[in-house]
Structures are given as C-alpha cells and as structure tokens.
Design a protein around this nucleic acid. Structure first.
Lengths: 208, 208
DNA sequence: GGCGCGATGTGTACGGCGTCCACAATGGCA
DNA sequence: TGCCATTGTGGACGCCGTACACATCGCGCC
C-alpha cells in the first residue's frame, strides 16, 4: 500500500483509499480517518482523493459502510456456530443471541471499526439497507431482522410483538457494547462482561 | 460573553470558557467544542485557555461533565413529576421509568449536549462519581442507581437481581437514545418513538 | 496511426486548528 | 514600595481540509 508506484495512474485509487481508511479507523476510530494520511499511505498526493470522494465526510461514510460489512462478517461467524437441531423455536432464539453476541464481540475485538461502523451519524439512518453487507450479503441490521423473523414464525416470539422489535433488541445490545468499550464496564473482567451480556440477551430474548 | 473587557485580567476565564464550550457543544456536539472559538467568544487570545486547561481534551472533558449535569437536571424534572402515592413498589417503578424517560427526552431536546455528555470516551468510566452532578447533587448514573435501590427495597425488584442492574438499564436506554437521535428512528413520528420507549421501559422494569 | 479529450493525479495556496515559546501586564504580599 | 507568581498576548510551527490551475495519461475517433 505504501509502495511507490511507477505509473502515473494508480489503478484503483478509490479502493486503495478505502482500504487505508479502514486501517486508520481500525487503529484510532473515525477521527483517525484523515484524508491526507490515507493518500500518503496510498502513495499519492492529497488532492488525488477528491477525484474519488467529494470530501472527507464521503470517505468516512464509505469506510463506515465497509466497517459495517466487517461487523456483519463477525456476526455471521457467530451465527455459523449455532448448532442445528429440530426445535425451530429454540434455534431461532439461539440465532438472536448469536447476533447479539457477535455484535458485542466485534465491539470488543475491533473498537475502532465498531465506532466507525456505528457511531458515525447519518449513515445509520439507512443502515437497514444492504449496501453495507458482509460476505453473506446481509447488513448487521438485516441479520438481526432475520433472526427475529425466525423467532416470530417458529412461535418463539408473539408475532403481534414482532413489529419494531429490532429497535428494542438493537437498543439493548448497542448500549451494552458502548458501555463495554467506552463506559463503566471497560476494563472489567471478561467474566463480569459475559454475565452482563447474558442477562441482557435473556431480557431481549424474552421480549415484551 | 462576547463583550470586550477593559481590564487585562478577565476575572473568571475558566468559567467563561466552560460556558462558551457548553454553548458550542449544544450547537454542534463535542466536535464543535473548538478551543480557538471558545476563547474568541470569551474575548481573549487563544493561548489564554492554556492557563486553565491543559489542552483541548481537558476543556472537552469539563464540558462533558457540565453536560452530564444538564442531563441530571432534565432527569430530575421527570422525577419530580412522579405523583406520590402509598404503593412504594409502584412508585419506585415509576421512578425508574422517569429516569429513562428523562434521559431520552434530554437526548431528543439537546442532542449536542447529549453527545457531549455521553459520547465522549474516557469520562464515562467515572460517570458514577458525583462530579458531574446537576442541581440535585446527583449524577445521572446515581439517579438511576437510586431508582433501582428503591425498587429492590420495596419488592419491585428481586434484590438478588439488583447487582449490575444499572448496566442493563443503562444499556437499553442509552441504545434507544442513540437510535432516536442518530439512527433509524431519527425523524420518525413522536408516536412511534413513544411506543418504542414504553416497550423498552417495560422490558427494563420487568428486569430479568 | 495519430490526435484530442475526458479522466486522473500534482503543485501551490489559503484559512483554520491545536500547541509551543518568549514576552508583557497585573495585583497581592513581603 | 517593590518583587514575583499568575494570567493574558504575539508570533510561529506543523498539521488539517479544500479550492484552483496545471500536468499527464489512456481510450476512442478520424
């Protein structure tokens, strides 16, 4: 990435800037996504970025999308680990827990990317769209919605309570993630964090 | 504030910078708390700030504390509106709901201050301390803890489940606040937001 | 096959930011 | 009264985002 190129054209500068931006976000969160540093790492002059992004905010938005894709991948990893069984209701509950667990794990493992993905305002409003999808083609919000749909159709969740349920679940899990990486739970033993997470997921799973 | 002073000494520059910083945060969130702009509004040269704050982060931290005090005041307003009655258990439940309602109302009414108060990392870890208290002398987290204590002692909450409960409650409510001001719920009708909030508070009140 | 034009990258420049350093004004205390 | 710690000033530096004019390239058309 930092290599000096010999051609005048870069090839795929847009992708390169996105990659470098994602690395910067990983190291220092959204505020570390600095346009000049990204171009520097891509071996290009600062203004070259403007051929591919209207301004810094646009770059940050694209990085945020990519970071949401990373989150989706981490969640999928958790979903894949759910054992298959006969009891559809029980399994759909496990899927919901897997989404929450993956979300929080992503926050703990990649706090910089997590903030880039979910603390950059303006993008979240369209977060239900598929544009920020991971390898599975689903955005984190779609993964959540899908898990809730499974619960509703298998009897694990009263279908009358299904509408709007993703807001409740997302609120709870997102709040906990923030608490764990920035708040009073930061630095606590993994054990305490785990038990808090399980209690919260119990709460969400039971619904209301 | 913007007035030109005639004395060389300012009088209470630290307080003035804090006040201007709070105004800036109110208008544009934490990132709008710009050191040079605060000194400009206080009618003082940029470097004067360094006699009172180590750096910009220190100013922002102080602003964050003050903003948490504002939140505490808004929550207290909601707590004061809880009708007094004989049923201690029912009343303590209402107190818990009032804390959540006030927290979310503050987020909606003062999103800039809300972000300054609760999205600035590093301060939240000591958020249980009283330094960020409102006029009542309690920080928002202490108000929450107090409401939960009331529930536990009046039978509204199984005392065995009391420990760590503030983390669960705070997670849920904080997540919803973020959803409402930055996320997919932004711009939705007040009706939808209200019903989502009530469902979430039902969930928290019931506990787990 | 040459050429022209749109797409892409460069250079220079501007204002704003946080922050460092040396200096000036002040007021309380000896 | 005079000294000195405290508080505010001025200037400078290196970052940042971004605007403008210019250079370089590759592709398609004659």
């Amino acid at each position: 990435m930092t290599a000096v190129r010999e051609t005048y054209r870069h090839g795929d500068l847009r992708q390169a800037l996105l990659t470098e931006g994602l690395l910067l976000a990983r190291e220092g969160g959204p505020s570390a996504v600095v346009l000049r540093e990204a171009t520097r790492r891509a071996g290009v002059s600062p203004n070259a970025a403007y051929r591919h992004f209207r301004d810094r905010a646009a770059l940050l938005g694209a990085v945020s999308d990519a970071a949401q894709g990373c989150a989706a991948d981490r969640i999928q990893q958790e979903l894949d680990a759910v054992p298959v069984g006969d009891d559809r209701a029980a399994q759909s509950r496990l899927a919901l827990r897997a989404v929450g667990t993956g979300y929080i794990a992503f926050a703990q493992e990649e706090p910089g990317l997590f903030h880039a993905a979910f603390s950059v305002p303006g993008d979240l409003s369209q977060a239900f769209s598929a544009s920020k999808a991971g390898r599975n083609g689903l955005s984190p919000f779609q993964q959540l919605a899908q898990a809730l749909d499974g619960m509703a159709s298998s009897g694990a969740l009263d279908p009358a309570r299904r509408p709007g349920m993703e807001f409740l679940a997302w609120s709870a899990v997102h709040g906990l993630a923030m608490l764990v990486i920035d708040g009073p739970l930061r630095g606590l033993t993994e054990e305490i964090i785990l038990s808090t997470r399980e209690r919260l997921l119990d709460m969400v799973e039971r619904g209301i």
